[in-house]
Structures are given as structure tokens and as C-alpha cells.
Design a protein around this nucleic acid. Structure first.
Length: 595
RNA sequence: GGCCCCAUAGUUCAAUGGAUAGAACGGAGGUUUCCUAAACCUUAAAUUCAGGUUCGAUUCCUGGUGGGGCUACCA
């Protein structure tokens, strides 16, 4: 409609003022709620074509449109804004097409589908997942769904940091103190078990270092020469040499961790199409570095470490390989990127990684470009903000890490408490109830995190937990459950609706308001895709649920109203239900039929 | 020191350069003969400061203040 209107306005300008208005000058937007009208033309930019006041100009264009375009019911001019009213019949005619859509409701389709790789999650194998990972996983997974809904081919990948000194730390502690403890024998989730030994190492290391400091050593030397740290380094050397005993221990403990992670991923409802391991990509990365060195893109320092000079790009000099020939973080990322391009020929590769690594990804992109990979332009660092607690950043030293598994079960528990307190779900079986508590608890958590603009830091208050009222997941879920209920009731009383009746339906302002909102669903999806922001979809869902609730409040299906209006309302409910569930699906949030 | 990001009601979040800056929570008050009261309605409350560009700035530019991040031969 906007486009049709723009065209009509362009013609009007031509006829009335003999001016050629280009697209930027014709600004049509939706009319704000507190004014009458559906679309609004901003008149200011068109003043250049005539010498009238803005009001006069709006008046002229408005009357011309109303006279020549039947879908325009009326208009009014306020200051420099021309509000155009579109006829109800046009809205309902437009809506009946939506009512007929299948369950792929409102997906937008881009004209040029691309292959997009999304990397998210990226855990370390020595610690369980925490709140920061939850935000990462939810954003990554939702981006996957949003980009897919736009018609792109999207591959979800994960890169696991399974190599390096940190892994040796937990292995060593387990060897010393583990007594062959396994997830099975301890009853601990694998990632938590390994995390426990990592913490144990850190404690012991600290004690040894303190002892050395009190005997007169400076802090850095003490940390480096603590016996347990030396042992860890020896273990890393053995690992890199492929020592069988160390490798076996490494694979065993990693497999525990992966089992633990899988459980958490499953609970969060996220998954991956392809998992890369740092242990498999650092070597290709090193090879690439050597090749680039031969080509003269890189340089070697006297201590034989390898560097790249990025000062021309406004960045610094960056180390790509240590003097002892071992790989650093970025070496591995170079290897991974090249492997991925070979595997999938991606157009874009989106890295969902926290904003503390902005510099790292700037460098990565620049390095790959310098190395001559044209696809490096398609690397996108999707930088999201930190999750902070009311008292500030999460710090493991202060024990303020919010564990992912704990949080998920707390959310389910809260959902249970709230539901029981409200006296809900009396007639369900225990299993059905658990399932609903799970959906609500996770819905609350996911929505709470995804509704915030991902680029911004956000505050998470665990003690207040998460609200179930207001702009929340459960509010939207509840709205959806009531829509389903409307249809259950309608069915019971034998009321059917007939989409064929829609074009002639009467409609009030509330109906039109909702129809307008529903039309915007695919717009919200494409906006979310271009901005890479699930928050756009989340806030759209909330607006819709809110409008629907207001509309629903005095909505009586079984009342004495005429058949056509009843039909329209049922149709709106149906489409609103589709839009809400489609929208929440894009966020990875499940919708219960009842709650 | 250098580079990057952020700043909106008491709090948590919104607002392609457009109209009177929206919600929610919390506070105060109200609404269930019909649809699920996890709802709905009413009410008080905000753009960090100073300039600039513009018909028009929360939005863009410059500077100040305040907060966060990066600046590892860690990942």
C-alpha cells in the first residue's frame, strides 16, 4: 500500500506542481496512533515544488488523492503532515489474503538468497556454560531462524576451544585428585565435573604461588614457576607431541564435557549443523601463516615469531605465531575461516561473539583480506553486549557466575510456583504440567534476554528472577493460549468462520488496528534480518499481544452480533495466533496451547 | 596514553531525522452475569551537559562529563 500511495503522490506532484519528486522526497509512514488516518505523508520535503505553506500543500495533495484514488476514504492535515485514511473495505480485502495463508505465515523472501554461516556458542571445555553463553546461544539460534525465514541457506556452527593450557589444567588436577571419578560415579554432569577440577587446579596454583611470593619471589615469576603450573606445561607439550596417555585422558574428559554441553544445548533448544574443534583448525591456520610468510605478507622477528603489520589499516602489529612456533588464538581463527569457506562457500559468515572481542575480529578480517581472500568481506562480527549483574560484571573469582543449568531449572521452578499459586492447570496430568512449566520458564528466560537490543549491555537480576507480567514471554504465551481457547470454545458451540465472508465484513477501529499490525509481520522479520536483531521481532510480538488483549477484552464470540463481524473477529484471532507463534518461533520460544 | 562502545521515568527496556519521547515493573486507584484476572482501565514520573547542521535532533557532527570494553607470545 505504501508503494501504491507513493506512486499516486508522485503523480499528484507532477500534475499539481509540475515537479519530479524522487523517492527520498516522498516520505510515507504509518500514522501515529493518536491521529486519525492510516498513512501519513510528510509534506516538508515537497515544499520545494511549490511556494505554498505546508498546510496548504497537504490540503491540495490530499484533495487530489481523495478525488482520484478510490481506496482513499478521507484525509486531514495537521501542520506539515497529511494523514490519509484508507477505506475499511481495502483493509479487509487485504487481510483476507493473510487469513488464507498457511503456517508459513508472513515470512519474507529475499530476492537473492545467500549462504550464511553462523558461528555461535563457542565454549571452553574447562567450564560449564553460564549466563553469557545463554545470551550468545539464544541470539545465535534466533538469527539462524530469522535468516532462514528470509529464504537464506543458513548453517549453524560452533567452534570448540578444546586445546591449550587451560585444558591441561583440569586434566592434571583430575589425575592428581580425581580417584578415577567419572560423571557416572559422581552423579555430576560432565562439564560440571571437569569444571570442578579446573577450579581445584586454580586454587592449588594460587596457594603454591603465594608460598613462593612469601619466600621473596615476585608475583609473575611465582605464578610461572609454581610446580603445578610447570607440570601443566609439560602436559601441554606431551599433548602437542601426541603422547598416547595424555591424548586418551584428553579425549575422555572432553567427551564428558560434550555430553554435558549437549544436555544444556538440548534444554535451551539450540543445535548445530557442524562443529569445528580448535584442535583440528590450528594446524591449517599455521600452514596458511607460513605460506603468507613466504609470499612476503608477513614478517619474522629476530626471536622467530611471526607478525603482520596492520598499521596501514589503522590497526597495530599483530602476532600470528609465537616464537616457539605454537599457534595463538587468531592463528586458529584464520584456519577455521579458510576451512569453512572451503566447506560451504559462504557469502557471509556471522560470528556471534561478545563485544570485548571487537578488536580481535577487526584484525581477523584485515589479516584475511591482506592474505588475499576475497570472501573476507563477508565476515561479520555480530558483537553483542555483556550480561551484567546488578552488582556489576560476573566474576568467577568472586563466585558471581550465573550457571546456565542452574538458571534453567530455577526458571522452571519459578514457573511452577507461579502457576500453582494462581491455581492453574488443575486438570492436567503431572507430565503435561511439567511440559508446560518448562515452556513457560524457558519462554520467560529467552524472551527476557532476546527483547533487548543485542548490541547493548544488559542487566540481569537473578534474585528478582524474571517477571511473568508485562513485556515478557509468558504474557505473549498466555495471549496465545487464550486465542487457542477462543477456538476451542467456538468449536464446542458449533461456531465456524468462513474466510469467504471477509471482504464484506464490517469493522471497527480495533479490528482495523489489528489488521494493520498483522500486515507488518513480514516487515518485522525483514527488519530483524537486516539488523540482525531478534529484539525487533520480540518487540513486535509484544505490541501485537498487547493490542490483541485490548481488543479481546470486550470480544464476545458467542454474542448476539452479526455473523460477518463474528467471522472477522475469529479470522483476526486466527491470524494473530499464527503471527504470535511464528514470531516466537523465530526467537526459539515454544508456545503452549494452554497454560 | 591510544582505539572502540554506551548514556532515555525510581528500575528494566522502546523510538528508518518527523507530530504531544512509547511500554513494562514498582507506587496509587478501579474493572470479573461473557470469552483463561498471568488480563483490562485510570494516574504520577525521563532524553547526561554545552555548542553545531536542519523547516524539524533522543537520533547526525564537535567538545565536556560519567560508565564499560580492548590495547597478551591468554582464549
Amino acid at each position: 500500500m505504501e508503494n501504491i500511495l507513493k506512486e499516486k503522490i508522485r503523480e499528484a506532484v507532477k500534475v499539481l506542481f509540475n515537479g519530479n519528486a524522487c523517492d527520498d522526497l516522498i516520505q510515507v509512514q504509518e500514522t501515529r496512533k493518536d491521529f486519525t488516518g492510516d498513512f501519513t505523508l510528510v509534506v516538508f520535503p515537497l515544499l520545494r515544488f511549490s511556494k505554498n505553506t505546508p498546510e496548504k500543500n497537504g490540503e491540495i495533495i490530499g484533495s487530489h488523492l481523495a478525488a482520484t484514488f478510490p481506496a482513499v476514504k478521507g484525509y486531514n492535515v495537521i501542520k506539515g503532515f497529511l494523514n490519509i485514511e484508507v477505506s475499511d473495505a481495502w483493509w479487509i480485502g487485504n487481510f483476507s489474503a493473510m487469513a488464507a495463508e498457511n503456517d508459513l505465515f508472513g515470512r519474507c523472501r529475499v530476492s537473492k538468497p545467500e549462504t550464511i554461516l553462523i558461528e555461535y556458542s563457542s565454549p571452553n571445555t574447562n567450564k560449564p556454560l553460564h549466563l553469557g553463553h545463554i545470551r550468545n546461544n539464544l541470539i545465535g539460534f534466533s538469527l539462524y531462524r530469522i535468516q532462514s525465514a528470509c529464504g537464506h541457506r543458513v548453517i549453524k556452527t560452533n567452534i570448540v576451544n578444546d586445546r591449550g593450557i587451560h585444558i591441561c589444567k583440569s586434566m592434571l588436577a583430575w589425575q592428581k585428585h580425581g580417584n578415577s571419578e567419572t560423571p557416572h560415579s559422581s552423579g555430576l554432569k560432565g562439564d560440571h565435573l571437569v569444571g570442578k577440577y579446573y577450579v581445584m587446579f586454580e586454587k592449588e596454583w594460587k596457594l603454591e604461588a603465594e608460598a613462593l611470593i612469601s619466600s621473596g619471589m615476585n608475583e609473575e615469576d611465582a605464578r610461572n614457576s609454581a610446580p603445578i603450573m610447570k607440570e601443566a606445561r609439560e602436559m601441554l607439550i606431551k599433548w602437542e607431541a601426541g603422547d598416547k596417555e595424555v591424548m586418551d585422558l584428553w579425549s575422555m574428559m572432553n567427551s564428558w564435557v560434550y555430553e554435558g554441553f549437549d544436555e544444556t544445548y538440548h534444554a535451551l533448544g539450540v543445535d548445530f549443523d557442524k562443529i569445528y574443534y580448535e584442535s583440528e583448525t590450528y594446524q591449517p591456520g599455521k600452514d596458511i601463516v607460513f605460506k603468507s610468510l613466504e609470499k612476503g605478507i608477513l614478517y619474522r622477528k629476530d626471536d622467530s615469531s611471526i607478525w603482520i603489520d596492520l598499521t596501514a589499516e589503522g590497526l597495530d602489529q599483530k602476532l600470528l605465531l609465537r616464537s616457539d612456533g605454537t599457534a595463538v588464538y587468531i592463528t586458529q581463527d584464520i584456519g577455521t575461516a579458510v576451512l569453512r569457506q572451503a566447506d560451504y562457500s559462504f557469502d557471509k559468515c556471522i560470528y556471534v561473539v561478545g563485544n570485548e572481542q571487537n578488536y580481535h575480529f577487526q584484525v581477523l578480517k584485515a589479516v584475511l583480506k591482506r592474505m588475499g581472500y576475497p570472501w573476507s568481506d563477508g565476515l561479520i562480527h555480530f558483537s553483542y553486549g555483556m550480561v551484567e549483574l546488578p552488582e556489576g560484571r560476573m566474576k568467577s573469582r568472586e563466585g558471581t557466575i550465573v550457571d546456565a543449568d542452574d538458571l534453567i531449572s530455577e526458571m522452571k521452578e519459578t514457573a511452577r510456583e507461579v502457576s500453582i499459586e494462581l491455581g492453574k492447570l488443575g486438570d492436567f496430568t503431572a507430565e503435561e504440567r511439567e511440559e508446560i512449566f518448562r515452556k513457560i520458564g524457558l519462554g520467560a528466560l529467552k524472551y527476557f534476554i532476546l527483547k533487548v537490543d543485542p548490541r547493548k549491555n544488559m542487566t540481569f537480576n537473578p534474585s528478582e528472577s524474571i517477571d511473568f507480567n508485562g513485556n515478557t514471554g509468558p504474557f505473549i504465551q498466555y495471549t496465545y493460549a487464550r486465542i487457542r481457547s477462543v477456538f476451542r470454545k467456538a468449536e464446542q458451540s458449533g461456531v465456524e468462520y468462513d474466510p469467504a465472508l471477509l471482504p464484506g465484513s464490517p469493522a471497527g477501529p480495533k479490528e482495523i488496528m489489528l489488521i494493520k499490525l498483522l500486515r507488518n509481520f513480514s516487515k518485522a522479520v525483514s527488519e530483524a534480518a537486516s539488523a540482525n536483531s531478534p529484539a525487533v521481532v520480540a518487540n513486535y510480538c509484544y505490541d501485537l499481544a498487547r493490542e490483541y488483549n485490548q481488543f479481546y477484552h470486550d470480544f464476545s464470540i458467542l454474542g448476539e452480533e452479526n455473523q460477518a463481524l463474528r467471522n472477522l473477529r475469529l479470522a483476526i484471532s486466527e491470524v494473530a495466533g499464527k503471527a504470535l507463534s511464528s514470531g516466537m518461533w523465530l526467537l526459539g520460544i515454544e508456545m503452549p496451547d494452554r497454560m
